[in-house]
Design a protein around this nucleic acid. Structure first.
Lengths: 207, 207, 207, 207
DNA sequence: AATGAATGAGTTTTCATTCAT
DNA sequence: GATGAATGAAAACTCATTCAT
C-alpha cells in the first residue's frame, strides 16, 4: 500500500524534516497492518508503534487520535483503489469491455490487499464520512463511464446513478465472495466475465 | 423488529417464567435500539439495561456476554429480512418479476428498519460467522430462485452462484444508497424497476 | 473530618445500600488524606482507592472524576469549618468577645486539620467556584455578626462588607502563620487576644 | 510586568549574547501570560514557547524545568509588588497614613495585574519556599513600619509580628475581594479608607 | 543558540463481568 | 430472578524532558 501520500497528508501533521517524514510513513504502514489484522477496536496505538519501531509518544507527534490515523488510512486506500482501477482503464476500449477490465483489476487488487477491504468496510462504523465519500466517488466514476459509453452509442441512453450503484454493489459483493473469502476457487477473469455478460445481456432467457 | 423469536432463542438462556420471558424480550428490544443508535462498541450493557428498565446484573441472567446478545440480534434480523422477502414472494409470478418484488420489499424494509442495516453490517467485524451465514443464506436463496426461473425457461440456463451474488450486491448497495442514505429521493419502485430492467436486458444499447 | 455529610451528597452519586454508603465514606476519608498530603495534582485516584482499600474502579461508582471528589471534599470541609465556628459561638457573649472566640476556635481547628487549609486553598485553582463560595459565605457570616453587634450598640454602626473581609483576611493569615506554619510558638489564645485587641481599639497610640 | 530582572536572573541560565537576552525575556513574558491564564498545571512549556515565538527546545537553554521558570516568575512578581509599595511610600507621612497608602497602592497594582495574584497564590502549591518567603518578607516589612511608627509615638508600643500578619491578611483579602474579583464596585481609596479607619480606632462603638 | 522530533513514564477513565444480598 | 455494587484489566493520551541536527 502506498502510504504517506497526499491523501494522508490532509489529516496528519506535516513533518518538517526528512526524519519526520520517515517516521510518519512507518506509522502509516504499521497502522495498515495493525488495523487490517485486528480491526479498529482491537488495534492499539501501542501495537502500531511497536510495529513501526517508534516510541508510543511519537504517534501523537503525527496523529491526534486513533481515529485520525484510521481516517488517513481510509483515504489513502480509497485513493489506492482508484489508482488501481485507473491503471486498468488506461487503454481505450469498448464500454462493456472497460467495465469488465475494471472489475478484473478490482478483484485482483482486493485479493492481494484483503486488509484494504476490511479497513474500508470498517470505516462505515468508525469514520462514516470517509466511507460515504469513498463510495460516492466510486459511484460517480462509474456513472461517468456509463455516460461516456452512452454518448458513444455503446450503452443505453437512459442510464442513471442507480445503474452505477447497482454495478458497484455487484462488484463489491463479487469481490467479497471471490477475492476476499474465496480461496481462488473462481479466477478473477471468470467472475468478471460473468458480471460482464450480465451487464451485456441481462439474465433473461434468449427469446 | 420482532425479537424474542426462535432465532434469538438459540443464543439466549431460556427463561422459565412468564416474567423472565418479558425481561428477555425487553432486553432484546433495548439492545436493537442501543446497537442501532450507537454501534456495537459504543453501545454498553448498562445502556441496554437502562433502556430495558432492568438492573444491570439481570442482563447476565439471559446473555453470556455482549457478543452473545449481538449475535442473537443479528440472527433475529437476518431472519426478519428473510421473512419480509418471503412475504413479498408469496404470490407466484414470473422470475424477473419476483426479483423485482423481492428488491422492492427489501428496500421498503431497509427504509423502515435502518438499524437493521447497521447491525447486520457491523456483524462483519463483531461476529463474522453470522455475517457470512447471513449473506451465504441469502445468496443461496437467490440462486434457488434463479434456478427455478431457468427450469421454467424464463431465465438463462447457465446462471450460477456468481450471478446470485451479483444480484445480491446490487440489491444491498441500492438499499444503502436509496433506502438508508436516501431521503426518499427515489421511491423503492423506481429503483427496483431500474434494477429489474438491468437484469432483464443488461445495459448495452439495443442492437 | 466528618465526610459523607449532606454537603458531599450533592456532588457524589448516592449509594442505595448500606454497603455503598460505607464505600463512599471510605473514599472521602481517603481522599482527604491523599489530597492533604500530596496536593491535588500529585494525588492520584489509585492513591485514594489504595488508602480506601477499594478497587480502582469503585471510585467511579461514586465520582465522575478527580475534580468531582475534590469538590465534594471542599464543600465538606467548608461546612466543617463553619460547624466548628458555630459551636464556639453557641454561648451568647459580647460581640468582640464572640469574634475572639471564633478566631480561637478557627486557629485550633486549623492546627488540628492542617490538610483542610491546604485543600480549601488549593480550591482556588482546582475549583474556583467552591473557593469563592466558601469565602463569600464565611464573609457574610462575619458581617451578620458585626451587624448584630452594631444593633446591640456594642459595635460601630457603619460596619460594612469590607470590614468583614478585613477580619476574615486577618483570621486566615493568622491561621496560616501560627496554626499551620507555626509549631505552637504562639498559642491560639494569645494570637486571638492580639487580634481581638486590634479590633477593639485599633493600633494607634492612646491619646 | 517587568521580567528579565535581577530576581529572575537567579534561577535562569545567563545568556551571553544580546540575542539570548531577548529570548530569555520573551520566555518570561510569555510564561507570565501562560501561567496567569491557565495556572501552573494547565500551562505547558509548548504553550509558553508558542507565545514566545521560539522553538520548544529553546526553553531548556534558559530554564532547567517548568518549576524553575515558575519560581523565577514568582520572585520577579514578589519583587514587583514590593517595588509598587515602596514607590507609594516614598513620601514621609504619619504611620497610619502610610499603611493606608500602601494598601491603596497594593489594591491598584492587584487590579492591574490580576495574574500576579494568581501566580503568587499558586506558589503555595508549586513552590512553597518562594511563597513563604514572599509573605515572610512582606510581613517583616510591615512590622518594620509598625515599629517605626511606635518609635515615633504614633502607634502603640506593644505591636508585634502577629499585628503585621493581621494587617497583611486584611490587605490580601481586601485585594482578593475588591481588586481581583470586584468589578470596581468599591474604589481602592474607599476600601483603603475603611481598613485605615479600622486600624486607627478598631470597630468598637465609641464610648 | 536554535530547532523540532523522539521518548516513555504515568494517569485517568471505561465498562464488561462477577458477586453478595 | 432481580438488584446494584465491586472489580480490575486494558488503553488512550499528555507532556516534560532529552537529543540529534
Amino acid at each position: 500500500m502506498d502510504t504517506g501520500t497526499p491523501a494522508a497528508a490532509d489529516t496528519a501533521k506535516q513533518p518538517r524534516t526528512e526524519r519526520g517524514r520517515r517516521t510518519l510513513r512507518k506509522l502509516l504502514d504499521a497502522a495498515a497492518v495493525e488495523f487490517g489484522e485486528r480491526g479498529f477496536h482491537e488495534a492499539s496505538i501501542s501495537g502500531i508503534t511497536a510495529r513501526a519501531g517508534t516510541a508510543l509518544g511519537s504517534f501523537y507527534t503525527y496523529f491526534e487520535s486513533k481515529e485520525a490515523i484510521f481516517q488517513a488510512l481510509v483515504r489513502d486506500m480509497s485513493e489506492a483503489v482508484k489508482v488501481a482501477a485507473r491503471e486498468a482503464l488506461a487503454e481505450p476500449a469498448p464500454a462493456l469491455e472497460r467495465e469488465r477490465a475494471a472489475l478484473t483489476a478490482f478483484l485482483r487488487f482486493a485479493a492481494e490487499h484483503k486488509e484494504v477491504y476490511r479497513i474500508i468496510d470498517e470505516a462505515e462504523f468508525v469514520d462514516p464520512e470517509s466511507y460515504r465519500q469513498h463510495y460516492e466517488t466510486t459511484g460517480a466514476r462509474i456513472l461517468d463511464r456509463l455516460r461516456e459509453g452512452a454518448r458513444k452509442g455503446e450503452l443505453r441512453a437512459d442510464l442513471e446513478e442507480a445503474h452505477a450503484w447497482a454495478i458497484m454493489g455487484m462488484n463489491v459483493f463479487l469481490g467479497l465472495r471471490y477475492a476476499v473469502w474465496g480461496e481462488g476457487d473462481l479466477p478473477a477473469e471468470h467472475v468478471a466475465a460473468i458480471a460482464g455478460d450480465l451487464l451485456a445481456k441481462g439474465i433473461a432467457a434468449d427469446r
